[in-house]
Design a protein around this nucleic acid. Structure first.
Lengths: 230, 230
DNA sequence: TTTGCGAAAATGTGATCACAAAATGAGATT
DNA sequence: AATCTCATTTTGTGATCACATTTTCGCAAA
């Protein structure tokens, strides 16, 4: 199993080699470019990124500590495999974390910010209509992130992104086998609830959005997808 | 500000230098050995750990990616400072995460495991009587961890420990200025609820335990502690 | 005493190398 | 054809070094 190709990623000036490697790998995993079970090697990535083992190893270490990658007993590094039980854990954890994050953001959101969130939701539907699943996925993440980060003291976002990263690989598989992945109806519901400053309704809409989106796959569907990926 | 001394830590045979550095630093931060604002240097720690910069830098990178340390603009690495608002975020996040983790563990706990948890609770009170705050803290963490990890598919524990790590530094300050830190009454309540397999009661007991324990400090108390630490 | 300046020291970064362990693959044996 | 053996290659690990930047500190000027 060889090192997969990495999506393009502009390197901002002044960014360290390590940060660049980390950001690029993270992005690749987040959008499902890596399949579960794929093994990544330090030298392989160093070559792909035109750098040396040192910064790449640091990036891999960071990715493993946030659950995006997994170190085997052999010390080899692989993209974690997902079981139906693990998938269910990830979905329920997403709901717990994001309901909480949404609640604690409600009070901080300005009308202006809510408008921006509504615009992001429109762009999601645009991307879906255009058939660009990856772009729709990125926009969907932006929708959620923009809500949660409205809380200036928020510290939950890194944890949420950790869960997103762990869902990335199966998301990539799903994108290959399912034509429509998102049900965005709940987004408008969430936006309306934000306007009303109704914490309970916001949390409920977010939970439903997750449950009916990627979380909507039942155990059998997941098992089928996982079999396809094997 | 110089590198603080590290608590003792046995190095298991076969453990890599990097893992050792990571484990030791993590433990130190978790039990509050480092004060907020303390800066740590790669070479300083490499010397303290009798190794070289490479594995230490990797350990520091990992610790920053789980929120235990913070990289400044200067690229210097420091123990994050805590504000009252951030403290409140951490406590409410602990409650959200641990209530969720406890709920999802209830169905998996055997009578035998519940007995072991009860024994851990006894040991907490022993350590408190003995006046060993650090040992009581470790035992308290073991109490919580043992419950949550009863769920074999659980993936929430790393996130919970991330929050514990972020609370570590203020915990160290609190231990210096407060004689009694824990109210363990809620532990027995949680154990009883576990025996009854009552998810709601377990979650409520855990939430109350956190709220009345370290979470019991109100904003003014925290502000006072932070002033003392400055 | 305070402020400004410049040399020295400290620090983060990343490439390279040597070493040990693991994986791979070719050829011989059953 | 399947399995075992051993040499080769690949891989992770960690120490070291050079470079650029930042910080520190002593000393002179205001």
């Amino acid at each position: 199993m060889k090192t997969p190709t990495l999506p393009l990623f502009d390197r901002p000036e002044g960014m360290t080699t390590h940060d660049y490697a980390f950001a690029r790998l993270r992005q690749a995993i987040m959008v499902g470019s890596f399949r579960p079970g794929t093994s990544v090697t330090i030298r392989g990535l160093a070559e792909a990124l035109e750098s040396s083992p040192t910064p790449v190893r640091e990036a891999l270490r960071q990715l493993t500590s946030i659950g995006a990658l997994q170190v085997l007993e052999n010390r080899r590094i692989v993209v974690p495999r997902i079981t139906p039980a693990r998938f269910e854990e990830l979905i329920s954890l997403r709901i717990a974390l994001e309901s909480h994050a949404a609640r604690r953001a409600v009070a901080h959101l300005t009308e202006r910010q809510i408008e921006r969130i509504s615009a992001i939701d429109d762009s999601i539907e645009d991307e879906i209509r255009r058939g660009d699943q990856a772009a729709a996925l990125i926009a969907n993440q932006a929708f959620h992130r923009t809500i949660y980060t409205a809380n200036p003291d928020q510290i939950v976002m890194p944890l949420i992104e950790s869960v997103w990263l762990q869902l990335g690989p199966i998301l990539g598989i799903a994108m290959e086998h399912v034509s429509e992945l998102y049900v965005v109806d709940r987004h408008r519901e969430a936006i309306e609830a934000l306007r009303r400053r109704d914490e309970d309704a916001v949390a409920a809409a977010i939970a439903a959005d997750i449950r009916e989106g990627i979380g909507g796959f039942d155990q059998q569907a997941i098992a089928r997808l996982l079999k396809l990926a094997a």
